[in-house]
Computed example of a mutant assay.
Amino acid sequence: MTGVGELLALVSLLLFSANALLIGPAVRRLPQDLGFLLGLTSNVVVAALLVLGQYALGGPGSPPEWDAIALFALGGLLTSYLGRWFWTKSIATIGPTRASAIQVSNPFFAAVAGWFLLDDRLPLVAVVYGLAVFVGLNLASRRRSGDPGEPGSGSVSLKHLGIGLLGALAYGLGNVARGAGVRDWEAPIVGSLIGAAVGLLVYGLVNTDLRKLPSAVRGADPVGRRMWLLSGVLTIGAQTCQIAATQYIPVAIAVVISVSVPVIVLPVSVIFLRREAIGVPTAAGVLLILGGVIGLVVS
């Protein structure tokens, strides 16, 4: 059944890539803080509708497992809240390019945690292909010389490096927690709902002035609102497919495939959207990612 897991991971990659292409225009129309909250709300609503539909058709097929529910909640806290918070913070302090480069360590943390906690032992060929994706992601995330300056364009302090690594660590551990949960209880859609609800609850309580929220939403750009809500649909779909993939393949392989967003986003941006030019390192990185993902799928 590994083919099913790899197919689900590929669908997750396509959905994450579509979201990456959407976020840039969405941020220009609506501030990230409010948009992020709308996206999380959309996560919960869409996941709830999917769960209702699933139960109308007979449910997940097995009774709830409380250990799995706790793991899904922990995964949501780590990914939907802590991972995104540290990720956003690192973008603000060191810029999106360097933050993206640090974020590629997410599969490494997932692989190590999966090995220790889930006994996910990767064959040597999978490690080689995974390393190719890892190197490719790092190359694709580098800022080209001559590009406009960005925050943190000088040397990166250990503090700011630590913030980015904490984000990658939170994502990696969160993915492992969700993978462990879906192996205890094969209910990836319910797991996505639990994780999204936890992320929304914590973010709403910690980062949002609930008294000003209704007026802020009403006064927001309507197109921006719709774009962020669509972003929520795309991300919950991607997360659900990623969680479901871990039922069939090791967590690290599912994560490596689903986070290989540059292999989709960069060609689309260059060829169809005309948004950016790419240099030799970026092109080499995309080819490495593509080769690594193909190798993981067919091996």
Rank of each mutant, 00 (worst) to 15 (best):
G291N: 08
L37N: 03
A132N: 06
L15R: 04
A180F: 10
A168S: 15
R142I: 13
L14V: 13
Y171S: 05
V255H: 03
T79D: 14
A277R: 14
G59H: 12
S17Q: 03
R178I: 08
V270C: 03
L158I: 13
A245Q: 04
P188Y: 03
L165A: 02
R121I: 13
W115P: 00
L52D: 11
L34D: 09
S269G: 11
A180K: 09
G174A: 10
L158V: 14
L78H: 02
D120K: 03
R225N: 02
A9T: 10
G181K: 04
L49N: 12
P25E: 14
V156W: 02
A187W: 01
S192V: 01
V44P: 01
L290Q: 05
L288I: 06
I69Q: 11
L117D: 09
N207M: 14
L234K: 08
D33E: 11
G95W: 02
A92Q: 14
R29F: 06
L30K: 09
V182F: 13
A177W: 04
G195L: 05
L193P: 03
V251H: 02
Q239G: 02
L52N: 08
P96H: 05
L118W: 08
I236M: 13
V206I: 15
S155W: 04
Y248N: 02
G181A: 15
A187N: 05
S231V: 05
S105L: 08
R28V: 11
G114D: 13
L13G: 07
Y203H: 13
A277Y: 06
P148M: 07
I236E: 12
D119N: 10
Y203N: 10
A92W: 03
L266D: 04
L22K: 12
P214Y: 08
P64H: 08
P214C: 04
L10S: 08
R84N: 14
L13I: 11
Q54A: 13
F86E: 03
I163R: 00
G191S: 14
P96G: 12
L13C: 12
S299C: 00
I278S: 06
K159H: 13
L71D: 05
L173Q: 11
L296W: 03
A252C: 05
V263P: 00
T208R: 12
P25A: 10
Q242C: 04
L200A: 09
E65M: 09
V27G: 06
N138V: 08
L166Q: 05
A277D: 15
L213R: 10
I102L: 15
M227Y: 14
G53R: 12
V259I: 12
I264R: 03
P151V: 05
Q54N: 10
I236D: 06
G199I: 03
N175G: 10
W87A: 05
W115H: 01
V51Q: 09
G61R: 07
T246Y: 07
V286G: 04
M1W: 01
A126K: 09
L117G: 11
V265N: 05
S192D: 02
T97M: 11
A244L: 01
S145M: 14
Y248L: 06
I249R: 03
I278A: 06
A177H: 06
K212N: 14
A252F: 05
D147H: 09
S157N: 01
R274Y: 12
K89P: 00
L50N: 13
Q103F: 06
L193T: 01
P31E: 15
G146F: 13
V268P: 00
A216W: 00
P107K: 02
A140S: 15
I249S: 03
F36A: 15
V298P: 00
P151H: 09
I102N: 00
V297E: 02
T88I: 12
